[in-house]
């Protein structure tokens, strides 16, 4: 039926090879082909950020990316942040500041926040809010998420 293609890329530090449908997006590949479910589907249209991953060091919406386009690239998902000390601090900040309620937006928020903290030494509130503008959260009202990221940036490095 649908056209398949073999790709090879680095996922969370480990090289791997997978066969994907050419029309499939990276989100579906991660969740359904590879079985990593930390990256979430919230809209499939780039509007919610629940599917945020990092590719070659920048954050992207995996739902807006063709899976085949992962070929040769370095992809990090929320699962890949497990062994990263800066990410540990960020996760702790989320927990400590009450930035998590239902938690559905949280993996995407953490991935994007991690990207913000890599880009900006000590981001202020305004910078964090703008940085998170592509991540929707229906529960928290964002304030505690922003607080967590700002606090993490203030103590880090």
């Amino acid at each position: 039926m649908s056209l398949k293609h073999d790709i090879e890329f680095t996922l969370n530090g480990v090289k791997r090879r997978v066969q994907v449908d050419v029309t499939m997006n990276a989100l579906a590949m991660l969740r359904d082909v590879i079985g990593l479910t930390g990256t979430k589907y919230g809209c499939g249209e780039g509007e919610c950020g629940a599917c945020t991953i990092q590719v070659d060091g920048v954050s992207l919406n995996s739902c807006l990316m063709f899976a085949v386009d992962c070929d040769g690239r370095e992809v990090t998902t929320i699962e890949g942040l497990a062994n990263d000390p800066q990410a540990d601090a960020l996760r702790d900040a989320f927990v400590e500041h009450g930035a998590v309620q239902c938690g559905f937006c949280t993996p995407g928020m953490v991935m994007q926040a991690d990207h913000i903290l890599h880009k900006h030494e000590h981001p202020d509130e305004g910078c964090v809010k703008r940085g998170l503008e592509g991540n929707l959260c229906r529960c928290t009202g964002y304030k505690k998420i922003v607080d967590a990221v700002v606090a993490c940036g203030a103590t880090e490095k």
Binding site: R91, V95, V110
Partner: peptide
């Protein structure tokens, strides 16, 4: 100010929702 008990799992993407 008590941390939410399920927050660490959620913040690391390990929580399995119905979708997962």
């Amino acid at each position: 100010r008590i941390r939410k008990m399920d927050a660490p799992e959620k913040a690391s993407g390990r929580t399995r929702y119905i979708h997962d």
